[in-house]
Every structure is written in C-alpha cells, then in structure tokens.
Amino acid sequence: MSDAPIIVSASPHVHSDRTSRKLMYDVVIALVPAFLVSVYVFGIPALITTVTAVAACLIFEYLIQKYLMKVPVTIADGSALITGILLAFNLPAGIPLWMIAVGGLVAIGIAKLSFGGLGYNVFNPAMAGRVFLLVSFPVQMTLWPTALENNTSLVDAITGATPLGMIKEGVQYGQSMSEISASLPSALEMFLGVTGGSLGEMSALALLLGGAYLIIRRVISWHIPVTVLATIAVMTAIFWWLDPEHYANPLIHILSGGAILGAFYMATDLVTSPVTKKGMVVFAVGIGALTVVIRLFGAYPEGISFAILIMNAFVPLINTYFKPRRFGSRIKAKML
C-alpha cells in the first residue's frame, strides 16, 4: 500500500460500464447492415464513397485538432467515424471524391470543431456537410446511379431519379399521382432497398434493423424516430386523403428518401437533440412537419436534412422550456 497511495474521491465509487466510446461504436455497429445493402446495391462506388468520407472526417479532425486548435486529438472516440459514415450515407454513389472531402471538411471543421468539438456542436455535422454539398453542387448531388445496374464500374453510370424526385417532377408537370405511381418502384422494393437514392437511404429494412439495435442497447430512445415517422405519416396521410391525385400516400413518404435514415440516425444524434423525453417529442414533431412541408411544397424533393438542421437550432430553446418535472412540485401536501 505504501508504494501506491490510496485514492480519495467523492461518491459514487462505482460506475456503470457505459462509456461514450461504447455508445459511438454501437452506432457504428447499427450502421453495418445499411452499409452492406448499399455495397450490394451500388457496388464498389459505395465502398469508395464511404471509405473516402470516413477518411476525410478522421484526417480533418486530426489535422485541425493537432495543428489549428492545439488540443488533444480525439479521433479515437468514434464520433468522427460516425460522422464520416453518415455523411457517405447521405451522398449518391459515384460523387467525385474531392466533393466528399469538401463535405468532410465542412462537417468536421465548420459544423463540429469550430463550435468546440464533440458535445458543443449545435448542428449535426454530417447533415451540415450534406446540405453544404447539396446547395453547392446540386447537379452532382442529385445524380443518382440506378440501383443494381452499374455496380461494377464507375464509368458507365446510368443515372435515374429517386422516388421522391419522380413525384416532385411529375407533380410539376401536372401529372396525376396514378400516372406517376406507375413508374415508381413498389413499396416492397423500397422497403428492401433497390431504388435510386443516397447510399444509406436504400433499405428501410436494414435501417430499421440497426435502429432496433440502438433502441435495445439504449443508445437512443424510441421517442425521436417514432415521433418523426409518425408525424410524417400523419401529415402526408391528411394531404393524401384530401387529394390522392396530387399527393403521394404516406407509405411512399415513409419508405422513400431519407425519412428512416434521418429519423433513426441523424435526428437522434445525442449532442444535437434535446435531453428530456418531452423535448425529444417536440423536436421530432418539428422535424416531421418541416420534412413534409419541404417535400410537398418546397423546391427540393427531400427535406429531412434541412428539417433536422432547422430543429437542431431549436434544441437549446426546447431544453429550456421542456424540463423534467421536479420531484415534489406536483401538489401542496395532500393532507388527509
């Protein structure tokens, strides 16, 4: 005992075995099924895109922390890895590699580290990176390689539209929903994930699998994903019910685009979502509503990334107004 003096610290003297790093790697594990689907659907380009995005995020985090901020480098905590994977999941396969790097720089450099690093960022870094790319390079960002047809070579990429893109375009040209839906993939196809779109948006099944894993491991709570999807479903259902010839049905809205990816993996980002369950529900309703508004009335076919970023900005406000109920504040003594 003399060589190693006893430790004195304040209680508690035990700690649960959950650590931030374990949480992060649980998220990575949850993303594996969707990643495998994307590689199956898009082939090597999907792999290249993901690896590039991850590498860009890790390298930028390392360089900025080491040489610009001169703080301890935290690339091992897994958060930059997740940002990289999520960024890739939000990009079309076959996008020029330098654009991915730019996206990584925006995600890590601007959205994360300039706010102070993990835990201090207001906006979801991957979302910020994607939106930056989307508004800067709209053409390349919406050049969707068609699923399963060109998974061997990058050169002959045949491109097609995403289901949401088809609907938006069709509606603009005055087509009715029944005409558009003839060219849409079936709900089952969308559920399994063989349509056009970003890497990670492919298979609802794979995403739900990963999402279920996260909820079971208690990395995320069910409140945000369920509420986001429910809000989208309810709102689109109302419009569809009012005018089924003009608006797509809720099933299409849930299964297509980034709804599930966003609801389970982006909106639930611990740092940029509210801390209380009540706040989470409010936050998720906001995301769902904004997504629907952008999808139905905005210029872009897909809106969940904008919706998440907008609601991210409201998180501090939500945290201020949706507090847990304090013990003992319910009633004045219930006397007998």
Partner: peptide
Amino acid sequence: AACIRCGECV
C-alpha cells in the same frame, strides 16, 4: 470527457 448531452443523467 466532454458532455455529449445524451440526457442519461436527466
């Protein structure tokens, strides 16, 4: 490490 605002403490 930095708080990741997971809300677990809450």
